[in-house]
């Protein structure tokens, strides 16, 4: 039975792997050294003639050891790409301490429990992402408000 949890409750950390660019900022800033990241670089062929081949980092392993984690949230604050989220789930006690190290598959499962961000104050400025998305919608609307077709 879940009690009424306050918004932004800290229970467990979820990872959106698609957003992660393996910048390693979370692993470096974690005070407990409990985020383990392995990755390799991949070179993609140039798409157009004359373009450079692009390298990107591919995540092999992203694990958070929740036995060590102190739920400070530094990793979530510092991530520049919004790949980590708080989730209010707290019921994951185990008999085996190795099972408390959650790999990226399990961290993705926690994503489905991440709540929507709390609503902003009435009359407050909307977050920049929301304003940009609204502007993009208006520009794309056929015969849109911007006036250009």
């Amino acid at each position: 039975m879940t009690p009424p949890l306050p918004p932004r409750s800290r229970g467990v950390i979820a990872l959106l792997e698609e957003n992660c660019t393996v910048c390693m900022l979370c692993a470096r800033d974690c005070p407990d050294w409990c985020i383990y990241i392995d990755s390799h670089t991949e070179v993609t062929a140039p798409t157009a003639p004359g373009a450079r081949p692009r390298t990107r980092n591919v995540l092999d392993r992203f694990a958070i050891d929740f036995a060590l984690c102190m739920y400070c949230g530094i990793c979530i604050e510092v991530c520049p790409f919004d790949a980590l989220f708080w989730s209010p789930e707290y019921e994951y006690a185990t008999s085996d301490i190795a099972a408390l190290t959650h790999e990226k598959e399990q961290l993705r499962e926690w994503l489905w429990t991440v709540p929507a961000p709390p609503a902003t104050e009435p009359n407050a400025q909307p977050p920049r992402e929301v304003a940009a998305a609204a502007k993009a919608v208006r520009a794309d609307y056929p015969g849109g408000f911007s006036g250009s077709s």
């Binding site: 393996v22 050294w33 392995d38 990755s39 390799h40």
Partner: peptide, 14 residues
């Protein structure tokens, strides 16, 4: 004693 997870560069496995 514990290897620092942040010592790896992005794109490095070991």
């Amino acid at each position: 004693a514990k290897p620092w997870p942040g010592a790896k560069e992005p794109g490095e496995s070991e």
